[in-house]
Nucleic acid binder design. Structure first.
Length: 492
RNA sequence: GGCGCCAUAGCCAAGUGGUAAGGCAAGGGUCUGCAAAACCCUCAUUCCCCGGUUCGAAUCCGGGUGGCGCCUCCA
């Protein structure tokens, strides 16, 4: 197999590098999953969608991928949330794991190969902490165990921080027994009412970062290929993972570090204090899942992205164009046999362009740009073929449609049946706008009567009446169809 | 203060040394009884500003200006 030439930007080196997996033909990927204390928001969704596509593309290029994305189900935030609701922390976490699964499925994300939970890997975590203590890079202090940053000379190589500066800004939390302010907890002594496990240091629970070191080692080995997360995890989370893992194993931890940019909301940083956090489920109640994916993928994954009503509406409109095109293509060529023979033009070039863009640090935005040509050609071949040979046109459309399916499998777009998608979208719009379908159909029937009688004044009046209700009608060869006009078309 | 990112048309956005993808919006056209959809055409001599390197820079270097992120939990 010719090895594909994927390059990716590595946060560790701050450069694009060719992907050279440790084991030829196989890529091992670890992505920091959600801390399950609440519903995920659209920012989380963007990150996970980005890596969903990374993994899909690696597989598309023939790599055997092992994709691990954890659930952090033991954590301060969970304990706090459980305290507020009076729920048991373990039960609350389990509940949000299920909610996350539903959300991920709703956004058409593929399941990782392994989705380990912290609570089920305490022995592995204890073992790695023991190893760090044995090696003298971690120490116990009144039931807590801390990692000694000064014992790991390469600390801060990922975030490129200066240790003295970090020390200047660091504060020891009350109750912590660190030797040095930068040291961080591997194990926390149990406090009353917290989930706790037995350990060589007494009852307690893991610190925040160690779970990723333990679980990635368990499922991917001590050295693996790609480790991902959002930008804010670079420091301290990923930095600490590197320190723990490399100090414990003596081997290089992850080879490539990929970090996803932030999602803003209407130009502002999403934050609880601003009160502008948008839950994924709330977004999905308003916008089609694939339209949301399209929106995420239309900007490079490392760049900031602004979530806004306009951007979402644009994405949804674009999805409608894509699906409308696919519907027409399927109507014309699905399941038909046009025999063997040449194709019109050079249809294969679109897939090549797509791959070239994706090879370049998973440039989905660039890849999407190339799709315009593909869809434009399909529309042209359906509506006004430049050549008379129907078999030639049919074959070409089928080839193009096949390429769309390939792209589909990578981006997680156009996975629905076009007719179904369009119908669902219309039904949602009908609900949102309170449109009376029976009345719409009656008016259309009346209009067609008028048209048959050549009473075009009346026909136009009925068209205008429908339009005023937010309904646009289309006279096609197969009869009159209708759709709900986008809200933007109305005068506000 | 430290580390880092970004700045491309009215808007969104790709492009990181070879002479500006794509989308939306806008204008014109084909089609249509009229429309819608679709397709075609037009729409940045120019990529925040000033220097420099180069035969050649939106792309590299230096200096500005303006946004933003991380440095505490954060996807």
């Amino acid at each position: 197999m010719a090895q594909p030439s994927i390059t990716l930007f590595n946060t560790l080196t701050m450069q694009k590098e060719p992907l050279v997996p440790t084991e030829p033909g196989a890529v091992r990927v670890y992505v920091c999953g959600p801390t399950v204390y609440s519903y995920i928001h659209v920012g989380n969704a963007r990150t996970f969608t980005s890596f969903d596509v990374v993994v899909r593309y690696l597989r598309y290029q023939g790599y055997r991928v092992t994709y691990v994305r954890n659930y952090t189900d033991v954590d301060d935030k969970i304990i706090k949330a459980a305290h507020e609701t009076g729920e048991d922390p373990v039960a609350l976490a389990a509940r949000f794991v299920e909610i996350f699964r539903e959300d991920a499925r709703a956004l058409h994300m593929q399941e990782p190969d392994v989705s380990p939970k912290v609570s089920e890997h305490i022995p592995e975590i204890i073992r790695i902490i023991e190893k760090l203590v044995e090696r003298g890079v971690a120490y116990e202090s009144q039931g807590d165990v801390y990692f000694s940053v000064s014992r790991y000379p390469e600390y801060a190589k990922l975030s490129k921080r200066n240790l003295d500066d970090l020390r200047a800004g660091e504060r020891v939390q009350p109750g912590e027994q660190k030797h040095e302010p930068l040291d961080f907890a591997l194990w926390k002594a149990a406090k009353p009412g917290e989930p706790a496990w037995d350990s060589p240091w007494g009852k307690g629970r893991p610190g925040w970062h160690i779970e990723c070191s333990a679980m990635s080692a368990r499922y991917l080995g001590e050295s693996f290929d790609i480790h991902g997360g959002a930008l804010d995890l670079i420091f301290p989370h990923h930095e600490n993972e590197i320190a723990q893992s490399e100090a414990a194993s003596g081997k290089r931890f992850a080879k490539y570090w990929m970090h996803c940019g932030f999602l803003d909301i209407e130009g502002a940083k999403m934050s609880k204090s601003l009160g502008n956090v948008v839950r994924l489920r709330d977004a999905l109640a308003k916008v089609d899942a694939e339209a949301l994916r399209l929106f995420f993928l239309s900007t490079h994954y490392r760049h900031p992205l602004d979530f806004s009503d306009k951007a979402i509406a644009d994405a949804e409109q674009r999805m409608e164009y894509f699906y409308e095109t696919l519907r027409k293509v399927d109507e014309k060529v699905a399941g038909k046999d046009f025999g063997k023979g040449p194709l019109h033009g050079e249809p294969g070039r679109f897939l090549k362009e797509f791959e070239a863009a994706m090879d370049d640090d998973f440039n989905c935005a660039g890849a999407l740009g190339g799709l315009s040509g593909l869809f434009g050609l399909m529309n042209e071949l359906v509506d006004k073929p430049p050549v008379k040979d129907k078999a030639l046109v049919g074959r070409t459309l089928q080839a193009l449609r096949e390429d769309v399916r390939k792209v589909s499998g990578v981006l997680g777009l156009f996975e629905d049946d076009p007719g179904q998608w369009l119908l669902r979208r219309r039904e949602r719009a009908v609900r949102e706008r309170g449109i009376d379908v029976a009345e719409v159909e009656r008016l259309i029937a009346d209009r067609n009567e008028a048209r048959k009688a050549k009473n075009f004044a009346e026909a136009d009046r009925l068209r205008a009446e429908l339009k005023s209700k937010g309904v646009e009608i289309m006279d096609t060869a197969g009869g009159t169809t209708w759709k709900v006009a986008p809200p933007a078309a109305e005068t506000a």
